[in-house]
Design a protein around this nucleic acid. Structure first.
Lengths: 340, 340
DNA sequence: CTCCATTGTGACACCGGTGTCATGCCCTTT
DNA sequence: AAAGGGCATGACACCGGTGTCACAATGGAG
């Protein structure tokens, strides 16, 4: 029955509701005696301000929206975990918005979301972080936004990412250091900037180690398990099989592992396999996948924290709102020295 | 710049704001001419009502909360999918609330959620659907709620479930029909009612087919992959190994598969394995897992739809707010006839 | 002792909708 | 013709907070 309103508190404390409001918002110019009286009333009446009324007065909703379209449930969950943490810290609510659309339909859909909820800000996760039409649309509607894991920092918006290219470089170098020279690569979905970045890291590692790049060892996937199966079959059908496969994410890597075991290719004895993302499946299959762990929760947490801070403080000190966090190489059983 | 408010619409259409409100809410007693005039104004001004103001006037938030604590990311995502669908249809927003607490801390946490957001209703998913203290707490605070997949229908609240016991019965009978007699069972987390139900289905199938129940073939897991590994090692260490293992969910079943392959036990030639839930991992490992698919999205969708309908219509017709949906047996490669 | 700046406080309008009630009108009914 | 009922509409208060401004009390400077 928490029916306490600002009026009942004011009456109880014997002050005006404006004064109660001042105490609530920790405004200056309230005498200590009055403040304590009001705070006692808060406790006695078990009062909590009504966020809806506050929202109406401020023309704010205290809602942050999070847009995603990602086949990986674990990625989504991690994004949500970080997002919720940041929102709760700042007394905001999080609205999740999975969304498979593209193009104008996508913009209309986001528009509807904004108008329906009057959200205060939006977090974009891949692949939306890189879609220019969305960024421009949000700017035109004057909706603050932050980007998680964008491919480029060409924008002056809040952006938090990890270094996919560097991580892909490292994992490729790991394979090279194990003696692998014929390393197949399975690309991700072309909409995702990480697809380009990871491929680029792979290429740089080959180049640095003077290993010839063989286009036939590269196949295009789309991050789905199914696409990984297709690519694996193609790759294992080559007359000269590679000794290692680096897939752009763990689902595809898991599919490679499955196809390998269907073909009775032993992993890692005959084939080394590496993935990316450190999805749960990476340690739920046997052998466990060597992969890259990204700080997904932390990226999202940071992005939202910065976003909320940005429209809370009107000081235009504008620190550079862009940050790159460390990813981590995780070595499991799916990679080993080349045998020959 | 959608700045249109009900006042600007009223001015534009040359009527009072109350009349605009009437058109908005499709109330009777508005002349056709007036209605059309106002609707034209809506279009011309690109007007959308402000849900926050509406919420304040109604003392409603148009927010549904969803509480869960489930290790399975895919289950959570499916719950969210169904929940969002229902909420959007009814113009509500969904607030997700993952929550690992128990006991009083949990109640305090839920209380804080309710007060912070003023949500209109709550959906409970396992294991919270069965926690009496939560149900009583919500009743005492007069918060409407719906339960997804509760173990018992002892409550008069909205409840939507699928028949876990029946499904476990069917999958056990499948194994029996393949000639298995020594069927190990791995239980789930004791907090979840499905743990009891699935075990009970297993027992009933044994009994019906006159197969002796052997307690040493049952081990207690907790739905996690890790617990499945432990149980599998125990089971495969028995002097008389079973010919089949039925794990209470797919993560544990996948772990059984991993341990089997570490021990060079061929699946399904030497060991048949069955899971439950049809999680993505069930088809991402090799061989694919025979399992049970539950209509998780539909259960959640139905629960929320009923919940919102309940507090929308004040007619006290009270249809029975409880529903049981069908689960489906999915046969993949991990189960086969017993060889001996 | 005045003057003025600062501090503490409350009255009041406002955010954008909804509920209540009064009013004026038209059409029956007797 | 008078009375009564239903329909269409608007004035106004209200939901629970916040912003603006006025004003009294206080205190330090001249």
């Amino acid at each position: 029955m928490s029916k306490a309103t600002i009026n009942s508190v004011a009456k109880y404390a014997g002050v005006s509701k404006k004064t109660v409001s001042r105490v609530l918002n920790e405004e200056p110019n309230v005498s200590t005696a009055t403040r304590e009286k009001v705070q006692q009333a808060f406790k006695d009446l078990d009062y909590r301000p009504n966020p809806i009324a506050r929202g109406l007065a401020h023309n704010r909703s205290f809602i942050i929206g999070c847009i995603y379209d990602n086949p990986s449930k674990s990625y989504i969950t991690r994004v949500q975990t970080g997002a919720l943490l940041a929102c709760h810290e700042k007394n905001y609510n999080l609205l999740i918005h999975p969304c498979e659309l593209r193009g104008q339909a996508l913009l209309d859909n986001i528009d509807a979301l904004i108008r329906r909820t009057r959200l205060d800000g939006l977090v974009l996760t891949p692949p939306f972080s890189d879609q220019k039409d969305i960024l421009e649309f949000l700017k035109s509607k004057n909706i603050p936004y932050a980007r998680v894991a964008p491919g480029t920092l060409d924008d002056d918006s809040i952006s938090v990412r990890s270094n996919d290219e560097q991580a892909a470089f490292e994992i490729t170098e790991l394979l090279i250091s194990l003696g692998h020279k014929d390393i197949a690569f399975i690309k991700g979905h072309p909409d995702h900037s990480s697809t380009t970045l990871r491929f680029s890291g792979y290429l740089k590692a080959l180049k640095k180690n003077n290993i010839e790049f063989k286009p036939e060892l590269v196949d295009e996937g789309n991050f789905s398990y199914h696409s990984g199966e297709d690519s694996a079959r193609k790759i294992f059908n080559l007359s000269k099989k590679p000794s290692a496969v680096f897939a752009s994410n763990d689902y595809m890597a898991a599919a490679v592992l499955k196809v390998a075991s269907q073909l009775s290719l032993k992993v890692p004895e005959q084939i080394s396999i590496a993935g990316f993302d450190n999805a749960p499946i990476a340690r739920h299959i046997w052998p466990g996948l060597t992969t890259i762990a990204q700080p997904v929760e932390k990226m999202t947490y940071t992005a939202i924290s910065k976003l909320i801070e940005q429209f809370t403080e009107q000081d235009e000190k504008i620190p550079l709102h862009q940050e790159t966090l460390e990813a981590q190489l995780i070595i499991r059983e799916s990679t080993d020295k080349v045998k020959s």
